[in-house]
Write a protein that binds this DNA or RNA. Structure first.
Length: 820
RNA sequence: GGGCAUGUGGCGGAACUGGUUUACGCGCACGACUCAAAAUCGUGUGGCCUCACGGCCGUGUGGGUUCGACUCCCACCAUGCCCACCA
């Protein structure tokens, strides 16, 4: 028979599903192992080869664990709510609700086609009301805990798409979808108080086993900095300007103050003679796009307010400026400018001819005039009583002398959760104007606001024909009266339902809890099941989610822990980021036209071949570049595997000798390679080094073919088991051909036997001055003296070692090095 | 500007804890099979010198540590990714 991937792949995929080979008993499993990969968002034309890379990599690991007798739970679903899917719907002009039914079918069909061992019964889609009902439940609980609140904020606005955008959808100041420059708009929004958890999110990083680079990225994103709040008195006024600084040691060098154009105190300076100039500047700054303002290379602009403040360290009068290089959202929105020791301040001072006073240098001596800012540590000068102190010490001393408050600042901002879009879970809140006027509300700080009763969930997303973003800073739901017109739960007056939907990252922040209990109608998840299955044993996914998704999942888990509904505060025991598949060295994207569609390759080479090819490309954590030529190599390999086992099985069925488990006396060399391979493949899968595991299997097959008489049924079975995680279909077919009655994927993973790995003889490396000059076959465990004699009896070695060597280095069972 | 990676044959990559650089695969060359080609199988394949035996050089560049460095340290160059006026 010939290897026909089309026939066998479809056959086994169907059979696995029927027999529930990959369905653990979620209630009664004895050795639970939760093996998770990030669920895809079905936004594009279909499954991407990158999704496939991810799913196969996760699957190989899961299959090893299953064969090691763990109850592996490996679920799959679709992150189908949110702006990505909605944008795709907008692009092709279909309604997202109808489109989701189509993409769902297509995605699941494609995912099934790659032959991964997913637990299909537990799949979920975030746009299913049975799922988002509990997403809304999460929101309500957050609100009741005071972790969800409203405030006015500057948000990203795309003037072309007429919609707000999430931060992550703004790429270098431009709209991800249309490339238009994004502007800022002030809107009242819902936020989650993730900043309350900043310290904990940072601290817990120490105890979790995650890819190091993800931990570093999160640490930088959280961005803890410690500094002091220093107050500056405005001359001739009661006003005080508070600034945050990490370098209180430089206060003596502060020669001016700068307020952000949006700083709340700015209007206070408008009564002065410089009113027009300041107003003009602010108006201009507001017009400037985010991208322009954030461009670090841009020449700095600013305007003098006409007012002065007093430097509290030396009593000097210093001018107060307004400039947009100071950001309203950072620190207090105002800075003390120390041009001598801050690059931005230096540049600004040069441009506007402001004084530069050096207060720190490496040796405490002046190096004025400075040609650039000195931002390092050193000794103080020009600083009155603090002269001569080390900058690190002076930081604390000066702050204390100014009675400044010490403050820990985080770069992390609260999570903006509302979206003025259609395709998401409606935020389950109701606003009552008459309650607001009466000062009533569920939370003191938010009069008029009530959470929808939990029994009334889900708040269903209605089918709305006009789902397009409106451009009015409101969701399309805001024009659907039947949706928003509700009675106030408190006073029964007419009230208005919140018409924004929540961010898609909230959907994906808790989905791994729902997988284990998808059918539960009364709770988001069952406590006992959570106890059994969570935290997730191994999570995998792309590095692009290092700070967003992966930070939100940690936040939500901490919140659940504080709610008392789970007993742990980190969601994933282990996380590993995998690399990316590029095409011709570039990221795959539709605009580049280099997207690889897995379907074509599955069609012509088979899922097994594509799986193996992707994994053979390079180390899983590094990714690789997709080249069509490489796939021939693994296809050849699979054809040889087929021939190797199928010929034997066919022969056996003729002679009826197949059922004898006897081996055919494998050669010691073959036996050794077999056991080395068992060891290597096991370890390599554990460490995600799939490429070298595959190469080890190739070496083993080469050995078998070179000594065809030495591989009997038992050796063939071990080989199939080792290959099974990588190529699940062909191994299953051949496994049954050998007469087995149960799936290879639930068979027991082989163990290696140490006794086959040790050798009687080995090739001793002989070096002279560190250069290899010969290898000598000697007995294992040879002593230095014997090794020396053996080495020196070699002609080549003799030539290089004429007399008595100066020194001899001997590494047992490895090498001997003569220094002459 | 900051952070994190990476740099080994014609190409993807391998190399344990500092100990035979280039496993495995692709490609290429030659050979077998064939009327021929494809497929398949076999052999070879880092560079330079040499008829050959053999020798020298070789893991981005320059230095250092070491009996010995792809591996450790310092400086530099190049590429990729992420973050970016965070006070």
């Amino acid at each position: 028979m010939k290897y026909n991937h089309k026939k066998i792949e479809a056959k086994w995929q169907k059979k696995w599903l029927q027999e529930g080979v990959y369905e653990p008993d979620l209630k009664r499993a004895k050795k639970p192992f939760y093996n998770l990969t990030m669920f895809p968002y079905p936004s594009a034309e279909g499954l991407h080869v990158g999704n496939m890379y991810d799913m196969v990599g996760c699957d190989i690991f899961g299959r090893l664990k299953r064969m090691q007798r763990y109850d592996v739970f490996q679920p799959i679903g679709l992150d189908g709510f949110g702006i990505h899917s909605e944008n795709y719907a907008l692009k092709i002009g279909k309604h997202p609700m109808l489109l989701s039914k189509i993409t769902e079918k297509r995605f699941y069909k494609q995912i099934a086609g790659i032959g991964s061992g997913f637990a299909w019964k537990e799949r979920l889609e975030t746009y299913d009301s049975e799922y988002y009902r509990w997403t809304q439940w999460v929101f309500i609980r957050m609100f009741k805990r005071g972790l969800a609140y409203r405030k006015k904020a500057l948000v990203n606005w795309c003037p072309q798409c007429l919609t707000v955008l999430a931060d992550e959808q703004v790429i270098a100041g431009e709209c991800e979808r249309c490339g238009t420059t994004v502007v800022k708009k002030e809107l009242e929004q819902w936020f989650f108080k993730i900043t309350d958890y900043a310290e904990r999110l940072l601290k817990n990083l120490e105890k979790i086993d995650w890819s190091e680079k993800v931990k570093i990225a999160q640490k930088n994103w959280i961005g803890k900095s410690e500094g002091a709040l220093v107050k500056f008195q405005v001359s001739g006024s009661k006003l005080q300007i508070e600034v945050f600084t990490t370098r209180a040691d430089t206060v003596f060098g502060a020669t001016y103050l700068v307020l952000a154009p949006e700083h709340p105190l700015v209007p206070e300076f408008l009564g002065k003679e410089r009113k027009d100039a300041v107003e003009a500047y602010i108006a201009e700054a507001a017009k400037r796009s985010e991208a322009e303002r954030l461009d670090a290379k841009k020449i700095k602009t600013g305007v003098f307010t006409g007012s002065f403040a007093v430097n509290p360290a030396n009593g000097e009068k210093i001018p107060v400026w307004v400039a947009d290089y100071v950001l309203s959202g950072v620190g207090t929105g105002a800075i003390m400018a120390v041009p001598a020791h801050d690059e931005r301040d230096f540049e600004f001072a040069k441009k506007f001819n402001l004084p530069v006073r050096e207060v720190i240098s490496d040796d405490g001596e002046s190096h004025a005039p400075l040609h650039s800012a000195y931002t390092g540590e050193g000794k103080l000068l020009n600083s009155g009583w603090a002269n001569g102190f080390k900058s690190q010490e002076a930081r604390r001393m000066i702050a204390e002398s100014l009675k400044a408050k010490f403050k820990t600042q985080f770069r992390l901002r609260d999570w903006l959760i509302s979206r003025q879009r259609y395709w998401g879970p409606p935020i389950p809140m109701i606003f009552c104007e008459s309650c607001r006027r009466a000062g009533r509300g569920e939370q003191k700080e938010m009069p008029g606001w009530y959470a929808v009763a939990e029994k009334d969930l889900p708040v269903l997303l209605p089918f709305v024909k006009e789902f397009r973003p409106t451009g009015t800073s409101q969701s399309p739901l805001a024009s659907v009266e039947s949706f928003y017109r509700v009675k106030c739960p408190r006073c029964s007056e007419w009230a208005r339902r919140e018409t924004d939907v929540s961010d898609t990252f909230l959907d994906s922040a808790w989905y791994y809890y729902r997988y284990i209990d998808v059918g539960n109608k009364s709770k988001p998840f069952d406590r006992l099941r959570v106890k059994k299955w969570l935290p997730v044993d191994r999570y995998m996914g792309g590095f692009e989610h290092a700070v967003l998704h992966l930070l939100y999942t940690r936040f939500i888990t901490m919140v659940f822990y504080d709610f008392g509904i789970i007993g742990f505060d980190e969601p994933f025991k282990m996380f590993r980021a995998h690399g990316h598949i590029t095409k011709d060295g570039a990221k795959m994207s539709k605009s580049r036209g280099n997207v690889v569609n897995p379907d074509e390759y599955i069609h012509s080479y088979g899922a097994d071949a594509l799986r193996m090819y992707l994994m053979f490309l390079g180390p899983f954590e590094q990714g690789g570049d997709f080249r069509d030529t490489g796939i021939r190599g693994v296809t050849r390999f699979l054809e040889r595997v087929w021939k190797f086992v199928d010929d034997y099985a066919a022969q056996g069925s003729k002679t009826k000798s197949l059922n004898s488990k006897k081996t055919q006396n494998p050669k010691p060399q073959t036996q050794k390679i077999l056991h080395q391979t068992i060891k290597k493949v096991t370890e390599d899968i554990e460490n995600l080094q799939y490429n070298t595991a595959i190469s080890a299997l190739m070496v083993l097959l080469n050995e078998f073919e070179a000594h065809s008489d030495s591989a009997g049924r038992q050796e063939k079975e071990i080989f199939l088991k080792l290959l099974a995680p990588f190529a699940p279909h062909i191994t299953e077919e051949l496994w049954y051909a050998l007469g087995n009655k149960k799936s290879v994927h639930t068979s027991l993973w082989p163990k290696f036997d140490k006794k086959f790995l040790t050798e009687d003889f080995f090739a001793l490396i002989v070096q002279v001055n560190g250069k290899v000059r010969a290898t000598v076959e000697v007995r294992a465990g040879i002593t230095e003296e014997d090794a020396r004699a053996a080495a020196l009896s070699n002609e080549a070695v003799k030539r290089y070692v004429p007399g008595v060597p100066r020194k001899v280095i001997f590494v047992k069972n490895k090498l001997i090095n003569f220094v002459v």
